[in-house]
């Protein structure tokens, strides 16, 4: 027994020695690679693996290109890219909101995209400076338990959820990129103080903290909380699967920031040594195939190639939301700081 184990450990030690050597050699070769587009493309995805992994697999199948994906929270990955600086292994950043993309643009981490790529989406869904492009649109909603909350009792504004009436009934996800982007928008429309008061109010109102949108939606359907601050497609997809009996409803308060329409989008890293291949990947996300995937599989709003959204959704044009320029909600750092100061991060 001992002999076999000793052998195993010896082999392990040799392998380790091997690894070490490889890596020493690797440090130089990585930066020397030219933009041939033949190496694996590295994508940092703030979007959930469940939602986008099938699409990326499709891309790999159709193009024969290899893609490595690092999944994480949008803000976490954006912050990582800033920390990594010129040494970042990432070629593409695929985020779930305009805020993180804007923050990366401000830090000069993203290259300017081809105008033809930018022009394929409506002006509202791309960076004014041209460093990122929206790949699908999504609406913030107030999801609610249709068994416990009557339509008439739903709040007229998301800001009402800090009222005593909603104590302990709300679920939220402060680490989530879409939520943070909404807070950045709230800071723009209402000012920092009111935004902070809202966050602190939710916290003091015993709002339950969740890991992400899916967890919140499931918490509503399981009766754990009655109200959740999430994106529309989590409910739309579940309803499609579970049928009309699905007990989670969508509320989009008229003219309220709680009904904000945001984008998921992508940018190409300035530090990437495969910028052409990375741009091709972004182009693929805007292609008809990918847009249909967003429409049919994830129930988001397509933004290019004239692909229609799913019928079950409120048409994008009918969503009554305040006028917020997505290019301006780029102070993610400030929002993270605000959430930290409020004691929720």
């Amino acid at each position: 027994m001992y002999r076999k184990l000793s052998l195993a450990f010896a082999v392990g030690a040799l392998m380790l020695a091997g690894c070490g050597d490889d890596d020493d050699a690797g440090s130089d070769s990585a930066s020397a690679t030219a933009d041939t587009g033949t190496g694996a493309l590295t994508v940092y995805s703030g979007r959930d693996e469940e939602l986008v992994a099938p699409l990326i697999e499709r891309y790999e199948r159709e193009t024969g290109n290899e893609v490595e994906v690092r999944y994480g929270d949008t803000a976490e990955l954006a912050s990582t890219i800033v920390e990594e600086g010129d040494n970042s292994p990432a070629d593409v950043f695929f985020g779930q909101d305009a805020g993180a993309l804007g923050a990366l643009q401000n830090e000069n981490r993203l290259i300017e995209l081809d105008s033809e790529l930018l022009d394929s989406v409506p002006a509202a869904f791309r960076s004014a400076e041209g460093n990122w492009v929206g790949t699908s649109a999504r609406a913030r909603i107030i999801a609610y338990d249709t068994r416990k909350v009557q339509q008439a009792d739903l709040p007229e504004s998301i800001l009402d959820l800090t009222d005593e009436e909603w104590k302990g009934r709300v679920g939220w996800a402060p680490t989530n990129g879409s939520f943070q982007s909404f807070i950045t928008a709230l800071r723009l429309t209402e000012g920092d103080d009111d935004a902070k008061a809202f966050v602190e109010g939710l916290k003091d109102n015993d709002a339950e903290v969740y890991d992400g949108n899916t967890a919140i939606r499931d918490a509503i359907s399981n009766g754990e909380v009655e109200i959740g601050l999430i994106n529309h497609y989590y409910v739309a997809a579940a309803r499609d699967e579970e049928g009309d009996d699905y007990p989670v409803g969508i509320h989009q308060p008229a003219g309220d920031i709680g009904s904000l329409v945001n984008i998921a989008g992508a940018g190409v890293l300035a530090s990437s040594d495969q910028q052409n291949a990375a741009t091709e990947f972004v182009r693929y996300l805007l292609s008809e195939n990918a847009q249909k995937y967003f429409a049919d599989e994830t129930f988001e709003y397509p933004v290019s190639a004239d692909v229609p959204a799913d019928d079950s959704l409120t048409p994008l044009a009918d969503i009554d939301q305040p006028d917020v320029d997505l290019s301006k909600i780029d102070d993610l750092q400030g929002t993270v700081k605000l959430l930290q100061d409020a004691g929720v991060l």
Binding site: L16, C19, G20, D22, D23, D24, A25, G26, S27, D28, A30, S31, E83, E84, G85, N87, S88, P89
Partner: peptide, 17 residues
Amino acid sequence: LVFFGTRVAVGLYQTLA
């Protein structure tokens, strides 16, 4: 080690080693 990997030992960053 994340800090060290991104700034100094770039070749070792995100490796098994």
